[in-house]
Amino acid sequence: MIDKDKVLHIAKLARLHLNEQEASQYAKQLSDVLGYIDKLNQADTQGVEPMVTASPIETVYRADEPKMDLGVEEKIKNAPETSGHLIKVPPVVS
């Protein structure tokens, strides 16, 4: 069961602003989802290896060869604010 407090806690960790009504609504929806997972939990999985990926293929590797396609201007272009080539963000340590 996911209650409203849990939803607000997770929202805080993800820096999401929810109002009371949204929190209640998501609590119900998420509880429904987890309720369904609970049903899956009833299946007997004794001796079954846990699945870590939906695509059980061999690892794909990349060779250790440097490559850069974009200039630095291009790379920071989407940042809302910059200072020189650094990205400027709201203060994180007060």
């Binding site: 590797y61 060779a63 396609d69 650094l86």
Partner: peptide, 26 residues
């Protein structure tokens, strides 16, 4: 390297990118 010089959409966390593992790390 200069500020943000050694970056790309993957290590800057742009949406829709796919990380691919470096063999030498293994």
């Amino acid at each position: 390297a200069g500020d943000n010089e050694n970056t790309c959409p993957v290590c800057m966390g742009m949406p829709g990118v796919l990380p691919v593992f470096n063999k030498e790390v293994l």
